[in-house]
Computed example of a mutant assay.
Amino acid sequence: MTIRNFARRRAAVAVLGVVAALTLGACSSDPTTVSASGTTGGGPTKAAPVAKPASISLAPAANAKDVAPGDPVKVTVADGTLDSVTLTNPDGKQVQGQPSADKKSWSTTEDLGYSKTYTWSGQATGSDGKPVQISGAFTTVKPRRQMAGSLNVGDGQTYGIAMPIALTFPSAVKDKASVEKALSVETTPKTEGSWAWLNGDTSVHWRPKEYFAPGTEVKVNANIYGVSMGGGTFGRQDISASFKIGRSQIVKGNTTQHRMQVIRDGKQVMDFPVSYGLDSDPGRVTHSGVHVVMSKHATYSMNNPRYHYSDVNVPWAVRISNNGEFIHGLAGSIWAQGKKNISHGCLNLSPANAKIYYDSVLPGDPVEITGSTQTLTSKDGDYSDWTYDWASWSKLSAV
């Protein structure tokens, strides 16, 4: 190849390179190019939100009948905000309520009455800027019967580490799930526990999985007003209580050893000779199991027609079940205390030792008995909660 021809080929290649560069430039995007919509860049543009009219939801729905006063009463709006909401009773009085911070909902903050018609009014504004009126009415149920419950715990009281919470009704609750959903227990520190229905569904108890930690703060709320209990019966009123768990104190006793120890905060503070129930008679034996202190009495009159005695007054009596078992003083059995079991199921102490124990007692203290031929069961009293293992207890919940 001559020098002239080589030069011509180099010039041709240079021309082709320029053409290729121009072609590539025409096919590529310039990131600074402004699109027809006025945006820059080659990515997809975000569509502007579509304005919509406000959509109102009422609970209860308009024209609803037989509404339980305990049901949620609420207005919510989609695609807009609430400007005003009013719920009026038949006398023209406005029901108290509270809007949410984002003005997307409004809820009542007071109870409704039974057998009354309530009327909604108000306005919402949609994202399209147009107003939508709120209107409608509903009627609450006329109950066949109203039923109240009672709590076994009281405000400001202090209880032992095994104390169950019991809400008791005068007759059986048919809709247990509805009632249980209206109940709550708040504890500090947080304590695992569960409700269980007992005594033919006339009582619902809450107990912790393990004994309460000493010093636990407890708040129980039974918001049962307006709640259906089944069969046309509804809750009469709410009830609540706040209380505290005191120190840990556990009685431990073995019927074969004829002794009773008291363990307080992990340390033994008492060890007394005792006479338990007569072992040879199933009707008199002291039951093994976890009892719970229910009450205490400076003097108590004992009666047992089955064993032909009545009006036997004993000092410093601490009830530990509803089957007749107490821890109490009895001077007449001092000779047997620490040696043999002769009582009718009670734990007999000397009056002096009984007084020492009595002065230390809180309702809810556990009394753990072992060694006897009979076991405590759910038939032995209202505070039989600890006769169930945790799996069995949990199954007694209705929810």
Rank of each mutant, 00 (worst) to 15 (best):
P170M: 07
A222M: 07
T32E: 10
A61F: 09
D83Y: 04
M302N: 05
S280Q: 13
V399L: 11
D279E: 15
A182L: 03
T140G: 01
G235Y: 00
P189R: 10
S194P: 03
G122T: 06
C27H: 11
T40R: 11
V77D: 00
K104Q: 13
A177S: 14
T32A: 10
N223I: 01
L330R: 11
I161F: 09
T188V: 14
L58C: 06
L151F: 10
K116M: 12
Q157R: 14
I161G: 02
K379L: 13
D380T: 04
A391R: 09
N152Q: 05
R4Q: 11
D311V: 07
D365W: 00
T119R: 06
K379M: 09
A137V: 01
L151Y: 07
I161M: 07
Q96H: 12
D91M: 11
G266L: 02
S178N: 15
V179G: 02
F138T: 00
Q249I: 11
W120T: 01
Y358N: 09
E192H: 09
A36R: 09
V218G: 00
T119H: 06
S105N: 06
G80K: 00
G329Q: 11
F272H: 03
T23W: 14
A12D: 09
V269K: 05
A47N: 10
C346E: 01
Y383L: 07
Q94D: 12
A62T: 15
A59L: 13
I342M: 08
G154W: 08
P164M: 09
L396S: 01
V19G: 14
T32P: 00
S321D: 15
V367Q: 00
N221W: 01
W206P: 02
P31M: 08
G129V: 12
D385P: 05
D66V: 04
Y225M: 05
S280V: 10
T81H: 12
S184V: 07
A213G: 06
E186M: 08
L330V: 11
G364Y: 02
N322T: 07
Y159T: 04
D389M: 02
W390C: 09
Y276C: 03
S394L: 09
L167H: 01
P60H: 05
R247S: 12
T2E: 11
A331K: 12
Y276V: 01
D71L: 03
G277D: 04
S28T: 14
H205F: 10
P214F: 03
A62M: 08
H205N: 09
D128P: 05
T256G: 13
S35G: 15
K267G: 02
Q257I: 00
